[in-house]
Write a protein that binds this DNA or RNA. Structure first.
Lengths: 354, 354
DNA sequence: TTGTAGGCGTTATCAA
DNA sequence: TTGATAACGCCTACAA
């Protein structure tokens, strides 16, 4: 069992002091080239790795970010988090951070966990998913000046913090437009009860698109909790209308799957679209709105790195329209201290169902 | 911004030395009751949390375990890892550990990551998923005496390390038996090419059950890479046989889903079963074999805790038959040093498809 | 039962 | 340009 390689081991091997080794790592330019090379060779030869714990004691930074893993509620939408987590871990790694997982049963429990994680592990930041109106978690973190980013925009106007989100309205609008192109005119929407940020957003995309073609839609706007059976039930009622819709835009793949079952049951020629492009959608050929999760995760890390490392490293994004709030005609770039916010465009994946 | 609360802060507040505070935390019984209470009050009042970094420097233990998050290959099976991760995080938390995520593109890359994680973060242990014959990762870790557990048994006999697995053969056997009970006699198997531990195991459960009822099955045993279209293709060929099977047992939900599509296409009355009980199976009413993932994760933590903390805390399992290798009629329990191995029984979830 | 001393590996400060 | 020193917060000996 080889002894642990510390900075002292490297220093001895290279015939320099520990401080010089540290300098080679952190400010190579102030070390004479010859010395630098000698130290680098020693580091490589010994396979030296700085101890994060010791470093943390000096710097107060753990290079750790925490994210909650949820208990796969519905089951269908679980894979969204899964893909996001993968992207987050990858992007964080590139930026020199590691991802730590935690679970929580409710908001109070989650806040207690923050306290724990912060106190014991000195976490550098949190990534929150699925925030909603009046989220107590963001308030708690903001109050304590703990860096965080949310995947999901801030639905309460006054709360100002960095977030990354996917433009849900654009997604349902794309789905609806696609259906219009296919010749559909009576297009219904099956979504969640009004009041949730995400749900209202997705509904809005459908509503604006149908009203743009001058269709009367109030009768075709339905609300239900999420779920397969719920989607099926609501779809049945829509198909029972005197003049039933010819297409159904759904706020989730779960609802869409249920709706599709209702449609098949009646052997009706009705198009259906979902949201999230989950594996289920791929499996059954459901047209669905796909979120750029890897990109969203990378953006989260970018924003965090900006807060933590102060500026630097903009990630080369695709068709993202970043949106920094109110900045005047002055120096280029958003004014410092302004939380950056990123809204990504989703993509419609067309399959047999629509 | 409140100053950081250290053990010294608590000591001052309680009017004792730092050591006494440490004793209250680690060996409360040696501290006088009155003093102990005073210290505890101070800890609570100040919200003191021992710094993991400082503790780690002294003890060499990080209380961190690492697990790899995969890029959701197929999509359908991604949710298995998801649920496992959740269970792992929860169980680890109870045992005083935290879960750190990492990604890797291939085995070499993964081993480099081990080196990194071990060197920098001083990880206490790794949880590996999806091991197979001649896994280089387990060899690397074992060689360096790094504690680890695999979710998935050791398929190479000589490798002896703690693992947790689900009895795949028992799963397909249960599915096959169920079909027999339903009156089926010609039961085919759609599985992966021979050579993979998991695949062979699942095939074995089907094979033993059909041979038990004296059915000739060689013609009905099919091999294909995993995937929906692959399952569909193979199922079509089976249905084209002169005497087609009346039931299809599949090694995964992906294959089963494809098979189901082939069956419906022909409007055939053929039962289909899958494996993993993924959300897709729930969604489309596919009979499938469900793995006890939360329990498997808890067992992983148990085994790890045993290695790390030396014995203690057996988790109250359900119908698990633990299996400690060769131990003689001597003291109760497995001989120390023997890697414990846990094989869990899966459950068949019967739905419309079978 | 309680207190004191030292060191884990790193980096910031300052002196050489 | 390089080196010595101190300090981060904790825990384990040992001394009182």
């Amino acid at each position: 069992m080889a002894q642990k390689v510390t900075i002292a081991t490297v220093a001895r091997q290279a015939g320099v002091s520990r401080q010089t080794v540290s300098n080679v790592i952190h400010s190579p330019e102030i070390v004479r080239e010859e010395t630098r090379e000698r130290v680098r060779e020693a580091i490589a030869a010994l396979g030296y790795r700085a101890s994060q714990a010791a470093r943390q004691m000096r710097t107060g930074r753990s290079q750790l970010i925490a994210v909650r893993i949820e208990p796969t509620r519905d089951g269908i939408n679980g894979s969204v988090l899964d893909r996001f987590l993968h992207g987050l871990t990858e992007a964080a790694g590139v930026a020199g951070y590691r991802v730590m997982l935690y679970t929580a049963t409710d908001a109070a429990n989650e806040i207690a966990t923050y306290d724990d994680l912060l106190g014991a592990y000195d976490l550098d930041a949190f990534v929150l998913t699925g925030t909603d109106h009046g989220d107590v978690r963001t308030a708690w973190l903001a109050e304590r000046k703990v860096p965080f980013v949310t995947f999901g925009r801030s639905w309460d106007a006054p709360e100002r913090y960095p977030w990354v989100d996917v433009d849900g309205a654009a997604g349902t609008a794309a789905a609806t437009s696609h259906l219009v192109t296919q010749g559909h005119r009576r297009i219904a929407f099956i979504g969640w009860p009004a009041g949730s940020g995400v749900g209202d957003d997705r509904r809005a995309g459908w509503a604006s698109t149908v009203s743009a073609i001058g269709a009367d839609a109030t009768e075709l706007d339905r609300e239900t909790p999420d779920g397969i059976t719920q989607g099926e039930e609501v779809a049945r009622r829509l198909l029972d209308l005197p003049t039933p819709p010819t297409a159904l835009v759904c706020a989730s793949d779960s609802l869409a799957l249920g709706a599709l079952q209702a449609v098949r049951e009646r052997a009706a020629q009705v198009a259906v679209t979902g949201f999230d492009d989950t594996p289920v959608a791929q499996a059954i050929g459901l047209t669905s709105v796909s979120q750029p999760l890897a990109e969203a995760a990378a953006s989260c890390v970018d924003l965090l790195a900006e807060v933590l490392d102060g500026g630097g490293s903009a990630h080369s994004g695709g068709s993202t329209h970043a949106d920094a709030s109110a900045h005047f005609g002055g120096p280029p770039g958003p004014p410092p201290g302004t939380p950056a916010q990123v809204l990504l465009a989703p993509a419609l994946v067309v399959r047999r169902s629509g």
